[in-house]
């Protein structure tokens, strides 16, 4: 199976800070991935729906508003309900260290905080997507 890795880059919630999401999306594209960017203000339902429809390998979400503890786990839960439990879910943004264990427990594979090089995120995706 040689198709490129497909990633949905998503901005859940009302947060308008999309510099990071767009920079990461572009870096992924330059690394040969197929990237779909949702744009702002997506509900967890819309994100899960798009992930299934677009048949992505990974959902990468970014939140800088502090609503991550609610929104990230919600997306994971909806993906499971819709049969997308194999999709790798990662997150980034302004996320306090102490919130990370809880998010991982909720099924977010990794959290990338400010200062993370895009290459680190890209490597992580390559190494962790769940397909042959």
């Amino acid at each position: 199976m040689n198709r490129p890795i497909r990633v949905l880059v998503a901005k859940p919630g009302l947060d308008g800070h999309d510099r990071g999401a767009k920079v990461v999306a572009r870096a992924m594209r330059d690394a040969g991935m197929e990237v779909i960017y949702t744009g702002l203000r997506q509900t967890p339902e819309q994100i899960a729906e798009a992930a299934i429809q677009e048949d992505v390998d990974c959902v990468a979400m970014s939140i800088l508003s502090g609503a991550h503890n609610y929104l990230f786990p919600k997306v994971v839960q909806l993906l499971k309900e819709k049969g997308g439990e194999d999709i790798l879910v990662i997150g980034g943004g302004v996320i306090p260290e102490e919130d990370i264990p809880g998010l991982k427990e909720a099924g977010i594979a990794e959290i990338f905080t400010p200062g993370t090089p895009t290459s680190v995120t890209i490597e992580f995706i390559k190494n962790n997507i769940k397909r042959n």
Binding site: L14, G66, A67, L71
Partner: peptide, 16 residues
Amino acid sequence: GYDSDHPLAEGEVGKV
């Protein structure tokens, strides 16, 4: 322009 009880406000109230 959403009140705190709007579904889209879930998780965002009082945050930023």
